[in-house]
Design a protein around this nucleic acid. Sequence first.
DNA 1: TGCCTTGTAGAAAACGTTTTCTATAAGGAG
DNA 2: CTCCTTATAGAAAACGTTTTCTACAAGGCA
Lengths: 343, 343
Amino acid sequence: MNKYGKITIRDVSERANASIATTSRVLNNTDYPVKPEMRKRILKAAKELGYTPNLLGKALKTGKSHEIGVVVPSLLNPYYAEAVTGIERICSARGYNPVFCSSDNSPDKELANVEFLIRMRMDGIIISKIEYGDEVIDRVNQAGISTVYFDQPVSNEKLSCVTYDFFEAGRMAAEYLTSKGHKKIAFFSLPFDRQSRISRYEGFKHGLKEAEGYLYLDSSSSYEGGEFLREFEAGERLVSDFLEKSEASAVVAINDLIAIGAMNAFSKRGVSIPNDISVVGLDDISFATMSNPALTTVKQPSYEMGSIAAEVLIDGLEGKRHKPEIIKMLPKLVERDSVCIHV
Amino acid sequence: MNKYGKITIRDVSERANASIATTSRVLNNTDYPVKPEMRKRILKAAKELGYTPNLLGKALKTGKSHEIGVVVPSLLNPYYAEAVTGIERICSARGYNPVFCSSDNSPDKELANVEFLIRMRMDGIIISKIEYGDEVIDRVNQAGISTVYFDQPVSNEKLSCVTYDFFEAGRMAAEYLTSKGHKKIAFFSLPFDRQSRISRYEGFKHGLKEAEGYLYLDSSSSYEGGEFLREFEAGERLVSDFLEKSEASAVVAINDLIAIGAMNAFSKRGVSIPNDISVVGLDDISFATMSNPALTTVKQPSYEMGSIAAEVLIDGLEGKRHKPEIIKMLPKLVERDSVCIHV
DNA sequence: TGCCTTGTAGAAAACGTTTTCTATAAGGAG
DNA sequence: CTCCTTATAGAAAACGTTTTCTACAAGGCA
């Protein structure tokens, strides 16, 4: 019993009349030979005392914490909540414990989180990096901690990355709408502060071909009641803006939250979806099936991306994979009820 | 430089020609007197070597990790995502680092998570406990780790708990509907495996007074694509069941996810909300404003509950609060468009 | 008999910190 | 010129583990 009243391995060994070494061996049931009678005594003592191993001591000694740090921009966006769930399931199936941090959409907090994880000597890190430069990457490299980037792409091929073809997703959305006869299409966006958004917009423009595109950008950043509201409200503001000056017959939104917020704002103003305006989202969050009308969108498999990132990381940690892995998942258009043919 | 290639405080001290003791004092800038010139040398050496303190060593020595463990049943439910965000903001403002674990709605995993947090010697724990018995409580008590329970109530008054008047919420929902003339009201529920659900239902029954109530319980537990889908689907199944046999004119749902899923299923079957059936939810997740029609619901302030739980815990850790704190937040009816008067 | 395994156990050295204690010099008071 | 502070620094003992040695029987084999 130490000064904090916690039972240590020493207490157990004393009560069992064994050495600390033997006690440790029994408690970790290694294959080191220990007489059955002794083993029983130690186990009994541990149980009676309610011994709880101190993972700090263990990790310090072994250099392995069996913990994996995870950094995402937000837990409020269902997109990340799903990714995190994928990570959680894989980690826990493979005997690791994920530690989640939210950077709250702030690059500063992101860096602080990474720093914390490094200091805690996590075995590995999984991160959806929003910071635009290389500060996080440099830091992680310097610390020499294995890392898998997911969601946002990183350009360096020496780095493992599970990402998504954002460009193609934007392109598909545009192509789909033009194939339905839409010529003038608006793009509702949040600020282009991260690669995924830029690529989606580039893809969108590319997919337009001879059709026309308009950009509507919401740069306001009021933040009350969480991500949902913020992005919904952005959707509403974009709609006001749009109705004042646009002649487009369709809208592509930078993500589903914006799309749903926009549809709602349209309805409130008496604009019928999809009869008056068609809307296409990007992400396919679960909620997309529940909006009214159900949202046509381009699916980004966040749950799978999370699971794969975790698999890649753990494989690396366990020496089952040696080269950096670069995986780019493919978009898929999900047709629902928010688009109709334009004549 | 140790065998893992990491820089330790010893490396810094050697390069600065100082002792480990002095180095530690400078790096933690304590008020212990150190000559300015020496201080500068140490700081310089630390910077040049890229020293990163090992928090495991520090925590082991000091007995304080400055980490707070958080266990919630799911991160996919926006209700918990919001709570977790509240916790995150407070912790990080007060210099603590939250470590989030999801128990994935499984009592076993919940216990495993708690065990992990205890072994990591977290300074404190915040938990929304779903396990119905006392196993978690006993474990935490035995470990002697300060804990704040939130969301689900615990009966023991020696325990700090930030909860919510679930009974009153159920009662208000029923009262509101009867005040609008509804006599026969159905209750759509998930299994009664946790106190909050039981209390909501009890409150609902109590609020009915002379009106009639019917219970529809969804016990199916298919789980694909996450919480959202699961609960939405439960909503759909409940609707099928309901349409076969009920004559109720209104529905109260155990939570907003179920309510929204149900509204959607009603619409698909040509039942108009609120003209044919009125629907009231419980929770007021952000999405409730975006459903169609917008959902009338009873607000449960999850973000605030999370923040308060964090404040209470940290106050306790820092000796600013000594007695257990029991806080019960009050419900508030939020009128939107999913209820109409029944004649 | 002497020697080599094999089974079983403990002592002690790490892991990276913080902190208590001890040591030295310098400066001030008497 | 002593004696007592005060400023400054380092040695070494923890914190709770794991693991490498070392130790010593007992048994098998030549």
